[in-house]
Design a protein around this nucleic acid. Structure first.
Lengths: 234, 234
DNA sequence: AAGTGGTCTAGACCACACT
DNA sequence: GTGTGGTCTAGACCACTTG
């Protein structure tokens, strides 16, 4: 692990544990460089991570300050539903409605930046969180990129298979949040009493090898949906 | 403007203009350093911005590659509604329903990290976009931080007043997206035909001096709401 | 004037992917 | 082995804030 990452984690630990309190000044770059036996630039690189996370503010001529205590798990948006549930202590049950391999339609091929007609997994799942059917996930992934996916993985966590057994890392995701009217099928799957609106999270995701490996469309119950994030000017 | 920012903008321009095409390799760090007459570290800093924006992928041992052409305006989430409309060529009309100064309630004070009872602006506005009442915005800001705000500013753009006339910069924002049921009042203001769900964007925003200057709650029509963003592992 | 962060350099060494 | 990006250093200079 790079040194700047260790410094980042240690300073972050001190912030969340209250050693560095909100609105208080952090030690100067030179002090931290001395403590961690590194150059000031390495310290700056570590603190920049905290700035981007929304925890720290650096003011030229003044010093570095703790902005606030809590922070959204800043990379939680690159996790799958199963990991997010585990992380927040929620129970998850998955109902697989569809798990097949089909030639990519023109629409799906365009989303996945791949040739039309190549095989993709088509997966539809209902996610039951804390006993409530909360999310319907439609997922498409090129078979060529994710070999040997089976029903067991789909029932549990596809992300866990990809990051664990295949050894990949999810590098990035592009997402789009909007509102949609629930279809008849979705009303049934979510056991809704009638027509309603769902919150749709449309997403394409990339592996660290640069391949676009997933297009997914997740439709959430509006009253359990929550999406938290930070934006920091760079 | 720092050199790495110029390099960032120039390389970005070349990507969006197609000079560097998707999936193609960018010139190596050493080549770019030579072209821009700077050190490789400065080039790396520039390319890191593009990586974080989701436009570029750097692979150790291989090179840097263009990931995709288009990108969400990556900092558009730090703009106000008026700027976003202007940027995307939409017309905006604003109906100010409330513009007063009141002592901060316990709830608002907690959101704004300020003492209860200090004066805050309380502003309710309906935003009519392309002729459709689309957003209801409830905004609270400490008077002490944003002096001399008047009805003209509120009718146009508060952000424009803050960044233009006051000379501040919006440094960061923390936001939370969820679904809510529209109130009677909101049904009337948005001219809805009946009860429906709205998409709520809850936000606290910071100035570059580190002050929390705004808590706002924007409720959007679900069928016009759209929120686009990228997440990149750091 | 003194202290702080921001930028930049030149060079070193390492990790990784290809040949 | 060669070439690529990733990390790190020591030091320089600048911009900004406060005294």
């Amino acid at each position: 692990m790079p040194k700047y990452m260790e410094i980042y984690q240690e300073v972050r630990r001190r912030i969340v544990s209250g050693i560095y309190a909100p609105d208080k000044k952090l030690p100067e770059g030179s002090k931290l460089a001395l403590e961690f036996a590194c150059s000031e630039l390495t310290v700056a690189k570590a603190l920049d991570l905290l700035v981007r996370e929304g925890l720290v503010l650096r003011k030229r001529g003044l010093g570095s300050f703790v902005k606030r205590l809590a922070s959204a798990a800043s990379n939680s948006h690159l996790l799958g539903t199963a990991e997010r549930c585990a992380w927040s202590g929620k129970t998850l049950e998955t109902r697989v409605q569809c798990f097949t391999a089909v030639p990519a339609s023109e629409d799906i091929a365009r989303k996945l930046l791949m040739p039309t007609g190549e095989l993709v997994y088509e997966i539809n799942r209902v996610r039951v969180i804390d006993g409530i059917p909360s999310i319907i996930e439609y997922t498409w992934m090129p078979i060529a990129l994710i070999p040997q996916l089976n029903l067991g993985h789909v029932r549990q966590s596809i992300y866990r298979y990809i990051t664990g057994e295949l050894g990949f890392t999810v590098h990035s995701a592009h997402m789009n949040i909007s509102g949609v009217q629930a279809s008849e099928q979705e009303i049934e799957w979510l056991a809704l009493s009638g027509p309603t609106v769902l919150v749709q999270v449309d997403q394409t995701a990339f592996l660290d090898n640069g391949k676009l490996f997933e297009y997914s469309c997740a439709r959430h119950l509006w009253h359990t949906f929550n999406f938290e994030t930070d934006f920091v000017r760079v």
